[in-house]
């Protein structure tokens, strides 16, 4: 019972971190929020690993901390302009973000409750699904490259959480997926250097 409560508290912290990511207008604190989220995810992996006596999950937590907590954040921060305060989203207001974020959160909880909960039966899986939705929302509503990458990391955090709480995938798959995501972020970081915001190009319409 206590274990379920601890899992619940950690999962709610994940959602709070997701809302914190959404509400940021400046990119630097947005990145910090997603790093915190990755650390909470690692804590959940450690907890589930200890509870189920699975050293593999603890190993997964170490990888999450190393790759998402340190390496990816280091790479992204290195690519940011010298003065990070210049990096901000001017296209969207905080009020719009809060309302749309909460709306998406409620919709994703509803979808999980209606479609997946009767089959899976694990209530906390809904947090994973809503985190995925929050990541997609961030990608769709922002024009800044860094915000897109952060949204993608958040989406992947949601998938790892869903997998951890519902049915942990074989470790080989989990680790390969983690490295794969790292590869995508690495490629994104290379591309982000060239161009920071994304506008409409006439040649790319039609």
């Amino acid at each position: 019972m206590i274990a379920v409560e601890i899992e619940g508290i950690l999962s709610v912290l994940m959602i709070i971190s997701a809302l914190s990511v959404q509400m940021r207008i400046f990119i630097n604190p947005m990145l910090d929020s997603v790093i915190v989220q990755s650390f909470i995810l690692a804590a959940i992996a450690v907890f589930v690993g200890v509870y189920e006596a699975s050293y593999m999950l603890i190993f997964l937590a170490v990888l999450i901390v190393l790759l998402r907590g340190f390496l990816i954040s280091f790479l992204l921060k290195k690519k940011m302009p010298a003065d990070p305060s210049t990096l901000r989203e001017d296209y969207i207001t905080t009020a719009t973000v809060i309302v749309s974020s909460i709306f998406v959160f409620i919709i994703s909880l509803f979808i999980y409750r209606v479609l997946l909960f009767p089959l899976i039966g694990h209530p906390l899986g809904s947090i994973g699904l809503s985190l995925i939705a929050q990541g997609i929302l961030l990608i769709v509503t922002r024009k800044n490259s860094f915000a897109h990458v952060i949204g993608y990391i958040e989406e992947e955090n949601g998938i790892v959480l869903l997998s951890l709480l519902v049915v942990p995938l074989p470790l080989l798959i989990e680790i390969s997926a983690l490295l794969d995501v790292f590869g995508i972020v690495l490629v994104s970081v290379i591309l982000v250097r060239e161009d920071i915001t994304h506008d409409i190009f006439e040649e790319l319409i039609g």
Binding site: I132, G135, I136, I139, S145, H148, V149, G151, Y152, E155, E156, I159, V181, I184, V187, S188, L191, E194, D195, H198, F201, E203, L204
Partner: peptide
């Protein structure tokens, strides 16, 4: 610039979808 934009859209849209 166009190639980079196309590569960016490809990477982000496809990766988000594949998730």
């Amino acid at each position: 610039k166009l190639q980079i934009e196309a590569a960016w859209r490809y990477t982000i849209i496809v990766s988000a979808g594949l998730s």
